[in-house]
Design a protein around this nucleic acid. Structure first.
Length: 378
DNA sequence: CCTTCCCGCCATTTG
DNA sequence: CAAATGGCGGGAAGG
């Protein structure tokens, strides 16, 4: 009993008690950030991070994936990441914004692709629209329909799509539940939803620790939700790269960077704290007692039909607007196009979100189109 | 009870 | 092939 791993600023006798809070991704992210957000840091080794932070490798992946999605890091090579810092966030967000709006355009055009023709009217059952989602998934424009379902479900992509929700609409405050519904697009209720929400909780926690978002409560509905804070523009001189100072007196209880490790259940015993001992016991046990029960329906991938984007492809949307100045005219068509679009959202909140989304998109589009046409046509 | 969400099994992808 | 990566959801901590 020489020393306890971490000295909790509370409880004088109740030690050794497992606490979920000290193992949260949010706290881990804070520690990760304070560990690497300093001069001289160029690259980060995952092993190094795991050791220094005293956590399992798995957790590092979680953190790193969302950080990369927002531009703080970028994968350099296996096991190696390049540190970009908070200064990398603005650019990344800008990109996401553009992608997000482009996504809406695709969605709208997609909805236009009904009726017409005649034969082959099989695609119209209750399945309704397959509207991918408000996310864009420009699959590199390669013909290969690589079943990259892995990527589609990645934490990284989810993070980006979640962020787009804020960037591409002017609604502030979105509940994870609504976010999940929107990002899921179709009905997909049940387990799919639950898993999605679990992921969103993870993401929200790290984004919160970065102070990009903040948890609040909906004014009326006591429901918890998150509001976007973004990279707050509070600095005046010097190109600082962090929302606040390093020693943010905000709320970090991060007294010690090294995350102490107590197993969740099982008593821990062993005051052993050799900052290195974290090996997983050869748990070769087969305790598998769960079979896939969700395998008959839900097939979000089956919808990738060859879209019929009028004359252009979504990837070139931006350039199109510049061509001719018939934007004004088009804007009108969009109005009808939008009204024609029937969001199958049976939820008020989602419909509202969608409206804000579209509205923000319209102004954004015309803004970009204008800018484009100006720098062209000399 | 319901919400939050950590843990780590094990499928996949990489090298 | 091993190692690195990272879905995924059980089930326990926290209101």
């Amino acid at each position: 009993m020489a020393m306890s791993p971490s000295s909790q600023p509370e409880s004088g006798s109740t030690h050794r008690i497992y606490s979920r809070k000290q193992k949260s991704l949010g706290l881990l992210c804070s520690n990760f950030l304070s560990l690497y957000n300093r001069d001289g840091v160029e690259s980060i080794g995952l092993d190094d991070a795991a050791i220094k932070l005293g956590v399992e490798r798995r957790r590092i992946y979680d953190i790193v994936n969302v950080l990369e999605s927002v531009g703080v890091l970028s994968r350099k090579a296996k096991n190696q990441y390049t540190w970009r810092g908070f200064k990398g966030i603005p650019k990344a967000l800008e990109q996401l914004k553009e992608e997000g709006f482009r996504g809406i355009w695709v969605l709208l055009m997609e909805s236009t692709v009904l009726d017409d023709d005649d034969d082959e009217t099989y695609s119209n059952p209750n399945t309704g629209s397959q509207s991918e989602t408000l996310n864009s998934n420009i699959t590199k424009s390669s013909a290969s329909s690589k079943p990259d379902n892995r990527r589609e479900k990645s934490l990284g992509l989810l993070t980006q799509n979640f962020v787009k929700l804020f960037l591409c609409s002017d609604v502030d405050m979105i509940s994870l539940d609504d976010a999940a519904k929107v990002l899921l697009g179709n009905a997909h209720s049940s387990s799919i939803m639950r898993t999605k929400v679990r992921r969103l909780y993870d993401i929200a926690n790290v984004l919160s620790s970065m102070r990009l978002i903040e948890k609040t409560h909906h004014p009326e509905t006591r429901k918890p939700a998150f509001k976007w804070l973004g990279v707050l523009e509070k600095l005046d001189n010097t190109c600082s790269d962090q929302p606040f100072t390093n020693e943010t007196r905000k709320r970090s209880f991060g007294t010690d960077i090294t995350n102490t490790s107590y197993k969740r259940n099982k008593v821990d015993l062993l005051p052993e704290n050799d900052q290195k001992q974290q090996r997983m016991p050869l748990k070769k046990e087969n305790l598998k007692s769960e079979e896939s029960m969700s395998n008959l329906d839900q097939d979000p991938k089956r919808c990738s039909k060859s879209y019929k984007f009028g004359p252009f492809s979504p990837t070139t949307v931006l350039k199109v607007g510049a061509s001719q100045q018939k934007n004004a005219r088009q804007a009108h068509d969009w109005e009808s196009l939008i009204s024609t679009y029937h969001p199958q959202y049976h939820n008020q909140a989602l419909r509202e979100l969608f409206d804000h989304y579209v509205e923000a998109w319209k102004s954004w589009y015309s803004e970009v189109a204008e800018k484009k046409s100006l720098e062209q046509v000399p």
